[in-house]
């Protein structure tokens, strides 16, 4: 008899979007001393999984994301995305930056379209796909606006679909909602989950916000400092689809407490180091 888990397992092995991080270290060499930012990181992510990297500032969570993106070369170890070693940035790994990163000289439409245009997708197909994604995030009527005419939340929505429209294997998100106000942040989290429910793209989401990590993730990897490493992996078994009300449930609060205890010690350490 075929169980649901087996079907799920089957689906995941055939889908693209697996990430494997093997013995990854990043060392910044300054004149006199060596500064270990990441130390032998080991991480395996299933296709379609939503993984949150959570930790205090200075734990190297953004550095780890930058290595997976191919922006930074590791000192040792390697990253495989769909069994292919990463040597440089590529369209198979979409990236959403913390800063507003739309190109100011392109309209919303042109920004979202850019990746498809680079890949040589035909004009008709580009228009259809971009409009579809603009509709999903409610930006269709702002398609001809320039970034400075959009609110912060709109800009980040555009950034997310700019990455997703290229159908990447992995979506890498570096504290994408950190600059938004609390209300907008909650809306963006729900919106992100609804898109993710449709697309099931693998997501690696960096955050320092415990609530955000629990609300979004299938699994939370808490990271420690000096040197940066993965301290524990906490699965999040809250049912999906998740809504903001779920953050008030007892399960959520228990999990919050557990994660909090986990990273508290590291936060203290990182504060002492400052």
């Amino acid at each position: 008899m075929v169980t649901m888990q087996q079907i799920e397992q089957e689906r995941r092995t055939t889908l693209k979007g697996s990430v494997q991080v093997e013995g990854l270290s990043v060392v910044y060499r300054r004149k006199q001393y060596e500064n270990g930012v990441l130390d032998s990181i080991q991480l395996a992510i299933q296709p379609g999984e939503f993984v949150c990297l959570l930790g205090p500032s200075g734990c190297g969570k953004s550095t780890l994301l930058n290595v997976i993106a191919g922006f930074i070369k590791p000192s040792s170890g390697y990253v495989l995305v769909d069994q292919t070693p990463i040597t440089r940035p590529g369209a198979d790994r979409g990236f959403v930056f913390q800063q507003y990163s739309l190109l100011p000289w392109k309209t919303t439409f042109q920004n979202v379209e850019m990746g498809l245009r680079i890949q040589g997708v035909s004009k008709a197909e580009r228009t259809e796909r971009v409009n579809d994604y603009l509709n999903r995030v409610g930006l269709y009527k702002h398609r001809n606006s320039y970034p400075h005419q959009l609110s912060g939340g709109m800009q980040q929505r555009a950034s997310i679909i700019r990455a997703l429209v290229n159908s990447p294997s992995v979506l890498l998100m570096d504290e994408p909602f950190a600059a938004l106000d609390a209300q907008t942040r909650h809306m963006m989290q729900e919106l992100l989950l609804s898109i993710w429910d449709d697309l099931k793209t693998t997501v690696i989401f960096v955050t320092h916000d415990i609530e955000e990590a629990i609300f979004l993730g299938d699994r939370i990897c808490t990271m420690g400092v000096h040197p940066g490493r993965i301290k524990s992996e906490i699965p999040v078994h809250l049912p999906r689809p998740r809504h903001f009300d779920d953050t008030l449930s007892q399960d959520f609060i228990d999990l919050h407490r557990r994660v909090f205890d986990c990273i508290r010690e590291e936060t203290m350490k990182s504060m002492e180091a400052c």
Partner: peptide
């Protein structure tokens, strides 16, 4: 950030030059 935006959309140096560096 702007250069990285181009890179992770699959831009080659020519795209980065034409779409990012010149308008920037």
């Amino acid at each position: 950030v702007l250069i990285r935006v181009g890179q992770c959309l699959g831009a080659n140096p020519w795209h980065i030059f034409k779409d990012i560096v010149i308008p920037g």
